[in-house]
Design a protein around this nucleic acid. Structure first.
Lengths: 143, 143
DNA sequence: CGCAATCATCATATCAGCATGCCTAATTCG
DNA sequence: CGAATTAGGCATGCTGATATGATGATTGCG
């Protein structure tokens, strides 16, 4: 469903979402929280930064932080960063080459329903919905 | 979504569905139709046979055939053969270890909705729906 | 300034899935 | 029976994802 790298990325963003508004969190801290290899995580954090999902700050007290609010980042946004350049939906189930829209393979309709359905679910799911806080409404008041 | 091996398996089963009721199809024929490596495909066909999805016959004129009708085999049935022993649904998004049902991780509900949704779609999709024939109703009459 | 913290980058090792080839056993046709 | 045909299984190399380690570049702070 998601590559291991993409999972690390989602988990890292969730950690940063929980620190949203506070000081940046260093790669080392995130790695130790997640139990993930530090330098490997560094690469994924770099990719997320380049995509504009995170911001980075060097030097003492530096680290990573969300570039936007937790509810404005979807799981699909993160998955896209580590996805194949050729989208899975284009490749069809019965043929590796992309289906010609005029003459799609006999599995095309069903298969795109499945893959695009999962993709749509990930697009509807925001990081704010995953971190156990009510980011979607108000940060302070929870009855 | 599906491993390459699982895709080969689905394609092979679709080929066999199109020959359903006729003579068995040899591994070599299937491999040449699919453009897949013969010996590698052989392993997947063997696995499908052991799982009871296919039947095999040796000797001249032998080969593989569906053990049941095309509409009785789902894509999920085939995917299961090559899936991890530990189901993807059990592992959660935020933690590799399975979530305790009493205290699931904060992403548990959303994530299981996504993964189980995709899985359910594959379970609802029969091979007969993928091979461009109207197996679901009648074999002979198509207006 | 000079040092320490931290991001950013490169180079390499490890591992699983994928692919290929060859060998053996079983089965069927002539 | 013997040759042809195919299933079943083993050994090996390839490739990309994953993981590890070392090094340079940038920034804040005393």
């Amino acid at each position: 469903m998601l590559s291991r790298t993409a999972k690390y990325a989602v988990r890292a963003v969730v950690v940063l979402a929980r620190h949203y508004g506070k000081r940046p969190v260093s790669a080392g801290e995130i790695a130790s929280i997640l139990g993930a290899p530090r330098n490997y995580l560094s690469k994924t954090l770099l990719a997320l930064t380049r995509r504009g999902i995170l911001t980075s700050a060097r030097g003492p007290g530096g680290g990573y932080a969300l570039a936007v609010a937790p509810h404005a980042i979807s799981v699909a946004d993160i998955a896209d960063v580590f996805a194949d350049p050729m989208p899975e939906a284009a490749r069809c189930l019965l043929d590796d080459s992309p289906c010609d829209p005029k003459h799609p393979c006999s599995a095309h309709r069903r298969w795109t329903e499945i893959t695009l359905g999962a993709r749509a679910s990930m697009r509807r799911t925001a990081i704010g919905n995953l971190c156990g806080e009510t980011w979607t409404t108000s940060v302070v008041g929870r009855p």
